[in-house]
Design a protein around this nucleic acid. Structure first.
Length: 428
RNA sequence: GGUGAGAUGGGUGAGUGGCUGAAACCAUCAGUUUGCUAAACUGACGUACUGGGUAACUGGUACCGGGGGUUCGAAUCCCCCUCUCACCGCCA
């Protein structure tokens, strides 16, 4: 969330910036500034009243120790009213803090100054593209047909065991999945990321820390009996490692990677978008997360972008990178690059990664700070993350783009991981 | 699931109603001494909110797992919750 200090000092600028996200903040900001004033006033009143009380209490203690019981008891008499006043002031104070927080969490992150204006994905700015879009024969199959033909993924079986959106990978399909996970993790490690294998369920505090709660509550599976949430992305557990942490400036940047399954309810999604692997309730993803000094976070963002681009190049997939416009960006992001691969049989661009700088938006919720080398003061760090990569759509594109009439070719870089170079039908 | 013991600052750990925001030790940082390293000595060393000051700094308030209560006054007493450890039960 934006901090009150950010808003207090630059309220006009905040309103101006949020217009790029098509968010009219003027009214909320006005309320925030008012609530902030209330809070500070009440804080001052409550504090000085409490001070008065503390002073009297100390005197009473002194009197008792000196044996002046009568005077002490006299002093006690006076405390009743003050006590009541403190109680009321504190109640007002906590109400006003609550009111302020409620307003603050409604404000989205400020978009970076390079974010293009726009309403929807139509207005995103293509940064660059790479790879070659293959020319497929007329009879080319979409990945769900290929999955059936080569016995790689069984959607029906997943339906039976759980429900739609929970596919069963089998045979070479399962192996390909494992190969990709290992390939991504190895590449990330080579780039200096530490590997984590975190819990797949998180508590409420973690959900709040990365911004999933309270807004996106309906998007997560909730295990009510223990009040845990199934993670929608490894970002949640991996970023929450640093909740309530102050790191030394020297430790930055912190680079972490993790493979996890991801669980998303995708409430409200339906239609042809969800066919095959395009949109699932459970899918595999390898995530990269960085914690960085504010001055360097945009360099880091570019570094992460080229790292992810490198993965797509190695997989020989046709891709494009787009910078999201204000209207298409997430609530929490300051700047986001989306990566899309071309799935040649569906003739569609599919999003396989989203790399974002959140600046201090997550840190302020997480209370993630670094200690400034010179001033020794704790300051909010910047967090960034991205997929490297999300598997299902990569698999969809790999299958579709590399199909021939008899086989599906595996990209060379995966040979050591799959142990096979082509997928042929009939094989178990 | 049952029983018992715990949860204190970066760490170990003292503290059972007021003089404790918190001893001591370790770690860390700065300085002194010292051919270098080490050792020794001296000093500094939590966070948040808030008032004053350009600032160094300084006044106030809160925080000893979380929440509530008793009391003029709570790390300390009471209640609830969470977590940790040990033993038992169950179990991959």
């Amino acid at each position: 969330m934006l901090t009150i200090n950010q808003i207090r000092d630059n309220s006009e600028k905040v309103i101006e910036r949020l217009k790029i996200k098509n968010f009219d903040a003027a009214k909320i900001i006005e309320k925030i500034l008012k609530a902030d004033q209330d809070r500070r006033r009440l804080q001052g009143e409550a504090d000085s009243k409490q001070n008065e009380m503390n002073t009297i209490s100390k005197e009473i203690g002194m009197l008792f120790r000196q044996g002046k019981t009568g005077e002490a008891n006299n002093a006690k008499e006076k405390t009743g009213i003050i006590k009541e006043e403190i109680k009321q002031l504190n109640q007002k104070l906590s109400d006003s803090i609550l009111a302020l927080d409620e307003l603050l969490v409604q404000l989205p992150n400020l978009p970076h100054e390079t974010v293009p204006t726009g309403r929807s994905s139509e207005d995103n700015e293509e940064i660059r593209s790479g790879g070659r879009i293959p020319e497929l024969d007329k009879g080319a199959l979409a990945h769900w047909d290929l999955a059936a033909k080569y016995n790689l993924i069984d959607f029906e079986l997943g339906n039976k065991i759980t429900g739609s959106g929970f596919p069963v990978y089998r045979g070479d399909g399962a192996k390909l999945q494992r190969a990709l996970i290992n390939f991504f993790l190895d590449e990330n490690r080579s780039a200096g990321y530490e590997e984590f294998l975190p819990p797949l369920m998180v508590n409420e505090d973690s959900g709040f820390g990365t911004g999933q709660l309270p807004d996106k509550e309906g998007q997560m599976y909730h295990v009510t009996i223990d009040n845990f949430y199934l993670i929608p992305t490894a970002e949640v557990p991996v970023t929450n490692i640093y909740r309530d942490v102050i790191v030394d400036e020297d430790e930055l940047p912190i680079k972490n990677t993790a493979y996890t399954p991801c669980f998303r309810r995708e409430a409200g999604s339906y239609g042809k978008d969800v066919r095959g692997l395009n949109r699932l309730h459970q899918f595999d993803k390898v995530e990269i997360v960085q914690v960085q000094h504010p001055d360097l976070s945009y360099n880091t963002l570019e570094e992460m972008v080229s790292h992810v681009e490198g993965l797509l190049k190695k997989l020989e997939l046709p891709y494009r990178i787009v910078k999201l416009c204000g209207g298409d960006m997430s609530f929490t992001s300051a700047l986001t690059y989306d990566f899309e691969v071309y799935s040649a049989a569906q003739k569609k661009w599919l999003e396989v990664s989203s790399v974002s700088n959140f600046e201090s938006f997550q840190s302020s919720r997480l209370k993630l700070r670094y200690r400034d080398k010179n001033t020794k003061k704790p300051l909010l760090a910047h967090t960034l993350n991205g997929s490297a990569l999300a598997l299902p759509r990569v698999v969809a594109a790999l299958l579709e783009n590399n199909q021939t009439e008899e086989v599906i070719n595996i990209p060379k870089v995966l040979y050591p991981y799959t142990g096979f170079t082509t997928i042929v039908s009939g094989k178990k």
